[in-house]
Design a protein around this nucleic acid. Structure first.
Lengths: 126, 126, 126, 126
DNA sequence: GTGGTCTAGACCACA
DNA sequence: GTGGTCTAGACCACG
């Protein structure tokens, strides 16, 4: 329980959104960024829950969600690990980027701007 | 309601998110884009509810939400109108843009990329 | 329709409160202040409604409300007039003052302050 | 709800004003006064509704209203709490005071008195 | 258990 | 006719 403190105190929790969702997002980003390395062992559900001071169910759900996306794998009796398949991590990273770009474009279109116009406007520029 | 709704049939409803929230988003965009003009009268709560096939309370909540943001005003007994203050609309538009840009930047940072790198990656480019 | 313009353009209408209520308040104050003098003739309901660009019912209700408080009197066929009884006006003025003071005291008590403390705090002083 | 409500039996309900509005006012004052302490957990929506003998939606609306003003925060699955940020409470208190003072001044001006004159008159003094 | 959303429908004040 | 409030009760996601 020392290494996983990576991302706890840095996270700003938004009480209006599901906790597990925010944890997923954070962990996905940590893996994409390489802060959680390929094959790294994660703390147990109970330990992480205690550390984060949240309900173990919340952590469980986070792990399960990421397992569904193949980013995490659980070896029974050994614990939960980051995947050791670099392609999966790369694909996840690309997905995050794709979604972010798509989102920006959709927003621009919705208010009748090109992405360039939105970009300028969003920086405090008209 | 006599005129056909600007935006209903075009909207894809995401059943996993609150209806009123999606309606708000849509209306904010419509106002920012100018599809709903300054001072325009909106359909009555009941009419729009019937048109959207939702409960009047859901529409009312949408209107009230936007009223709090000053984008709409309601005149007692007359109905609900788009604000006639262009500055408010401009500010709202800018807020949308700012938020979109901030979001993109945050995502880029979270996965350890510059915004340019994320942009390229998100378009299917490495 | 020239003299009654006394109080129209100066009034900031709050669309979230009943119009007739705001008109009553304004007229009561105008009478208390002497801007509407004892015995003064008021515009007809229709004229004032046209001038204010509101529904005649709204003006009617305003007049009726003030008649109930004896501040206005209607002489059939002649129109509506401010009372010519100075005592009534004085009493109305005092009522306004009493209510304002009572309100301030109640507010102070509700947040656990003396009226003096509230007064200082409310001016931007701690 | 296990503890008795701080404020219910003391409140005089004015049937001519929205319930949720009166509840908000009361709670704002209770928080400003310190009767509801920083970080205190509020009764659940259902419990308070049962206690007040109103519909849960009415209580929820009250909580949400105060949440928008940052005085309350709700932690998912845990309940609703008074903010633990003393500055927000202080600011709220100051707002109440400011509004009360501004109101008194406006009233005085509207009837052509100084605030001192209004104060004297309002206490039953000429 | 918690809050949150939505529906259905009644009732009211205002214009 | 308009919006606004309130009730009753169902259903859901979250922790």
């Amino acid at each position: 329980m020392t290494e996983e403190s990576l991302w706890y105190p840095n996270v700003r929790i938004d009480p209006s959104r599901p906790l597990y969702e925010q944890f997923c997002e954070q962990m996905r980003a940590d893996i994409a960024r390489g802060a959680l390395q390929l094959g790294a062992r994660l703390p147990s559900v109970r330990d992480l829950a205690a550390w984060l001071r949240v309900n173990p169910n919340t952590v469980m759900r986070t792990y399960q969600e990421l397992e569904r996306g193949k980013l995490l794998v659980t070896h029974r009796g050994q614990g939960t690990f980051v995947t050791d398949d670099a392609r999966i991590v790369e694909e996840s990273k690309r997905d995050i980027a794709r979604q972010a770009v798509a989102e920006l474009r959709a927003r621009a279109a919705s208010i009748g701007l090109t992405t360039e116009q939105l970009w300028l406007l969003g920086q405090g520029e008209g």
